[in-house]
Simulated scan of single mutants.
Amino acid sequence: MSEPNSLEPYSLDLAAGLPQMAAAPTTPRQLLRYARILKTAAGFAQRQFDTVSLSDVSTRAHVPLGTLYRYFPSTVHLMLAVYRQQLRELNDAKPASSRCSQQELTGLGMEIFHMRVMQPAVEHCLSRTWDTRDGDIPVLLRDIEALSAEMVAAAIGDAGRARILLHVISGLVQSVNCRRISLFDAEKDLKNACKLIADA
Rank of each mutant, 00 (worst) to 15 (best):
D56N: 13
E3H: 15
I112N: 00
T59E: 15
T132F: 09
K94C: 03
V63P: 06
N91G: 01
T26C: 04
R133T: 08
V63W: 03
E150G: 15
L78F: 03
A155T: 01
R133E: 00
L126M: 14
R47L: 11
A153S: 14
A23I: 00
R99T: 05
S148R: 15
A198L: 07
V122L: 03
V57N: 02
I112G: 00
L147H: 05
D143F: 12
Q102I: 00
I144R: 02
K188F: 13
A121W: 06
S11A: 11
A159N: 00
I169N: 06
G109V: 03
D158H: 10
D50E: 13
M110W: 04
A42D: 13
L105N: 04
L65N: 07
F44P: 09
V117S: 05
P138S: 04
E187Q: 14
L172N: 01
M21D: 12
A162K: 13
S97M: 08
V176Y: 03
K195R: 14
T67H: 04
P4Y: 08
R33E: 15
G109M: 05
P25H: 00
R163S: 14
V57K: 01
F184N: 15
R33Q: 15
A41M: 11
D134P: 02
G107Y: 02
R33P: 06
Y34R: 11
D50R: 12
P4G: 07
L141N: 06
S175H: 08
I37E: 01
R99Q: 10
R133L: 08
L183V: 10
C194W: 05
W130I: 03
R179F: 11
S101Q: 01
L31W: 08
L166N: 01
L65P: 05
V117A: 08
L105M: 03
A155V: 02
I156A: 03
D136N: 11
Y10I: 07
A153T: 02
A198P: 08
R128Y: 09
L7W: 13
L141S: 06
R179I: 06
S58M: 03
S170C: 10
K94H: 05
F184M: 15
E8D: 11
G17D: 12
L141V: 06
V57W: 01
L18K: 11
R29N: 12
R88E: 10
F49H: 09
G135W: 01
N177R: 15
A155Q: 08
L196T: 14
S53K: 10
S55D: 10
I156S: 04
D189W: 13
M110I: 08
S53W: 07
F113C: 02
P73Q: 02
D92T: 00
A200P: 05
S101M: 02
L108C: 03
F184E: 15
F72E: 10
T26Q: 07
L65S: 07
L18T: 14
P25R: 00
R142E: 15
I37P: 02
S97L: 08
D50A: 08
A155C: 11
G157R: 09
A198F: 13
A186D: 09
L165W: 07
A121E: 06
G109S: 11
N192M: 14
R128E: 12
D136C: 08
I169M: 05
E111T: 07
T27M: 14
L172S: 04
L12A: 05
F113V: 00
V176M: 05
A193C: 06
G107C: 06
N192R: 14
